[in-house]
């Protein structure tokens, strides 16, 4: 009885109220002190979705839409006008478009020899560059993963450094290095007796120059990923293989390769996508030449869109590129992840 009386007196006092509030806030980790507004969390995460919508979703969808039209010029027409009393909101049409249906695709696939040329060039670079880089990347990763190598951190940094260089900057350096007359590469080749190679003057060698440039820049990036993959392979597997009688090659063949499969797949797929999108290197180093021997698909898109203002046609090429890259990736993932 006495106890309940004391308790009720205590409860009614202001000190008790303040105290209990403090305890409550502390218990709820202060969240009780912040006013709760429904849907507030969505407001916090909305910037991503807004930016994603404006800069990725819309352009992608609009490109697909645009591929069925011809861009005629800038339009002054009003697309949509909303009258709200004295206020008029109007959306301008921006582009003057003319519907052409599948014409662009028909022309691309059957008649545009320059597009076929760019497709061939890009495929050539892909077929030479990706295997070269994956094998080289794996080899350097294996060497840097070996126990006997010292100063691993230094080599790792040096090999990975090119990926941080600006595209145009490094392309310009390669342009100078591989210059036919005054380039360092030909100078060295002549000194060792191999003789000068028409790096930028011959179509085949110009493509090889691009392969070398891209490999130099991306080797370290892929090597780091492969190295990380190598380091996740449990050491006991190698020891078990050693006990089972495996030599170096057999350990690589039966332990390293199967264990590295998902990482290799990632490297191959991302490199494939990257090579099919190659632009800055041919743009700066070869300018697409000599006589379009190095023009790539994205460079062709650029030329069509921004030099000749064929926005609709350029969009159609972009769509074709997306389809190509998707097919390549699906094939690689299917084949690469078969169990």
């Amino acid at each position: 009885m006495v106890l309940t009386a004391i308790q009720s007196t205590l409860r009614s006092s202001t000190t008790y109220q303040q105290l209990s509030d403090r305890v409550r806030y502390a218990r709820q980790d202060l969240s009780g002190a912040v006013p709760s507004i429904p849907g507030l969390p969505y407001l916090y995460i909305s910037p991503f979705f807004i930016l994603f919508g404006i800069f990725l979703m819309f352009p992608a969808a609009y490109t697909f839409y645009l591929s069925f039209f011809d861009y005629v010029g800038v339009s002054n027409n009003i697309l949509l006008s909303i009258q709200m009393g004295p206020v008029v909101i109007s959306i301008p049409e921006i582009a003057n478009l003319e519907f052409v249906g599948l014409n662009h695709y028909e022309r691309l696939i059957f008649r545009d020899s320059l597009f076929h040329r760019s497709l061939f060039n890009t495929s050539f670079i892909f077929l030479v560059q990706v295997p070269t880089m994956v094998i080289l990347g794996l080899a350097t990763a294996l060497v840097l993963d070996a126990k006997f190598i010292r100063a691993k951190g230094l080599f790792r940094t040096l090999i990975a450094l090119p990926v941080a260089t600006g595209l145009v900057a490094y392309s310009t350096i390669f342009l100078l290095l591989f210059n036919g007359e005054v380039g360092l590469v030909n100078y060295v080749l002549e000194q060792v007796g191999v003789g000068a190679i028409p790096w930028l003057g011959d179509g085949f060698w110009a493509r090889i120059t691009l392969v070398i440039a891209v490999t130099w820049r991306w080797l370290g990036y892929n090597m780091i990923i492969l190295l990380a993959g190598l380091q996740t392979i449990p050491e006991p597997l190698y020891e078990a293989a050693e006990i089972d009688g495996a030599n170096r090659w057999q350990k690589f063949r039966y332990v390293t390769l199967p264990q590295l499969r998902p990482v290799l797949l990632f490297v191959i797929v991302s490199s494939t996508i990257g090579t099919f999108q190659i632009f800055a290197e041919p743009y700066v180093i070869t300018g697409g030449g000599p006589s379009n021997a190095t023009i790539t698909i994205v460079q062709y898109i650029y030329n069509q869109a921004f030099l000749q203002l064929n926005l609709g046609y350029a969009s159609a090429v972009s769509v074709i590129l997306v389809v190509l890259v998707s097919i390549m990736s699906i094939i690689q993932i299917r084949y690469g992840s078969e169990e």
């Binding site: 006991p236 089972d244 495996a246 199967p258 264990q259």
Partner: peptide
């Protein structure tokens, strides 16, 4: 001699079976 030349067999704590 290397392990593979000694004709020993070993069972590891975590078995070290080849996962693939």
């Amino acid at each position: 001699k290397r392990a593979r030349e000694r004709d020993v067999a070993m069972v590891f704590q975590n078995y070290a079976l080849y996962p693939h």
